[in-house]
């Protein structure tokens, strides 16, 4: 049986477009995600300035704080790039350290977001307060969920890399695909950050 298997093994990995199925899947999935965040951001834009009662964004947004958390998330993209580099160049320690760094930075971002949500809550802004609250929390909350899923994803890869077989023969691919997802989530945050925090209302 083993002898027979190796006949078909190479054919299994030959794909029409020369790109691995899983990577193609992630690309197409991210196209779908673009529409997802596009719709959420559009809703935010539609309701800009439509809050009837406060707190209004200008009163409550802490731009220095969120700039810091944005910096943290941007740095996580850098560590992610280095993790991919480590995987591609056969440097497992570098890959693991950088994955861990990405996870910690991602968790840091989520910590900032939790702090921000709690502060807003204390200052009287919850989703049902006004249009800003509704659009802000749903948009950034769903983005945060994506970061959280990303953290779980990377943590699973990190854990799996310590197995005897590591991440197997597709190690580079696995890290590469996770990187695609992580960078996408970062880029979306830059758009969100610009629209909510930087463009004055």
């Amino acid at each position: 049986m083993a002898a027979a298997t190796h006949h078909t093994a190479p054919a299994e990995h030959a794909t029409t477009m020369g790109i691995d199925h899983r990577k193609l899947l992630m690309w197409i999935f991210l196209a779908s995600e673009c529409l997802f965040f596009g719709s959420l951001i559009s809703t935010y834009m539609v309701f800009r300035g439509d809050s009837i009662v406060g707190p209004y964004p200008a009163e409550i947004l802490d731009i220095p704080l969120t700039s810091t958390s944005t910096f943290v998330l941007l740095m996580s993209s850098l560590t992610m790039v280095l993790a991919v580099y480590g995987a591609q160049h056969g440097r497992p320690t570098m890959m693991r350290v950088m994955l861990l760094g990405t996870i910690i930075l991602g968790l840091g971002f989520l910590g900032f977001q939790t702090y921000e949500f709690r502060t807003f809550g204390a200052e009287g802004l919850v989703p049902s307060t006004n249009q800003f609250g509704a659009t802000f929390f749903v948009l950034t909350g769903l983005h945060g969920t994506h970061v959280g899923v990303g953290v779980l994803y990377l943590a699973s890869l990190l854990l799996a890399s310590f197995r005897r077989t590591g991440l197997g023969r597709d190690q580079v691919l696995h890290i590469d695909i996770a990187g695609l997802y992580w960078h996408f989530v970062d880029i979306v945050w830059i758009v969100i950050f610009t629209i909510i925090y930087l463009i004055p209302q």
Binding site: T43, F47, S128, N130, A134, T135, V138
Partner: peptide, 11 residues
């Protein structure tokens, strides 16, 4: 209790 689609509260 959000007001995405409720008229009168900005939705």
């Amino acid at each position: 209790g959000t007001n995405f689609f409720t008229p009168g509260s900005g939705g």
